[in-house]
């Protein structure tokens, strides 16, 4: 049995934590074993962040924590106490879509839409990193986000449009 090496099962207590999510401070209590992803989806009803594998294999759960794109499935909510988190629900401002969101619609950069929030959050993180200069580099640095419908070319087109837009500014 795989659980044999635990003599007496631990029963942990909830921890109080405070997260700034999309600019809003949220205090809540969760047990240590709650991933940031499940915390968002099940405890805060922010279901825009998606669970595609729960193991860091697909990128659907990508959120931006303290300015960096990370996988919310591979981090615990308790580890992010005090952090500032941006999810897909907080990408647009004042009801206006972010340019990437617009570009995704214009380029038909999704079909089922399930990987989309992760793709958009990841692309925002990537643009902020400023390391991708060419389409090939964009593709490489976006490769942590799988799309099963096969919207890949449209996704990269959408990102290229916005990224070029930014460099022109």
């Amino acid at each position: 049995m795989i659980t044999e090496n635990i003599s007496t099962p631990v029963i942990s207590h909830k921890k109080k934590l405070s997260l700034t999510i999309n600019g809003e401070v949220k205090t809540l209590e969760v047990k240590p074993w709650v991933s940031l992803l499940d915390c968002l989806r099940e405890h805060l009803d922010l279901t825009g962040t998606k669970k595609g594998c729960d193991h860091g294999q697909c990128g659907a759960c990508t959120v931006i924590v303290d300015g960096k794109r990370i996988l919310s499935c591979l981090t615990l909510a308790v580890m992010k106490d005090g952090a500032s988190i941006t999810t897909i629900e907080g990408i647009g401002k004042d009801g206006e879509l972010h340019p990437l969101q617009k570009a995704f619609i214009d380029h038909d950069a999704f079909q089922c839409g399930y990987c989309t929030p992760g793709q958009i959050c990841s692309a925002i993180g990537m643009i902020a990193e400023g390391k991708a200069k060419t389409r090939t580099e964009v593709k490489e640095l976006m490769s942590g986000n799988l799309c099963r419908c096969g919207a890949n070319t449209n996704i990269i087109d959408a990102i290229m449009e916005v990224q070029e837009g930014l460099t022109n500014e």
């Binding site: 794109r69 990193e129 942590g144």
Partner: peptide, 9 residues
Amino acid sequence: GASAQIRNM
């Protein structure tokens, strides 16, 4: 190695 998100963590 891995992906950009994982390298950030």
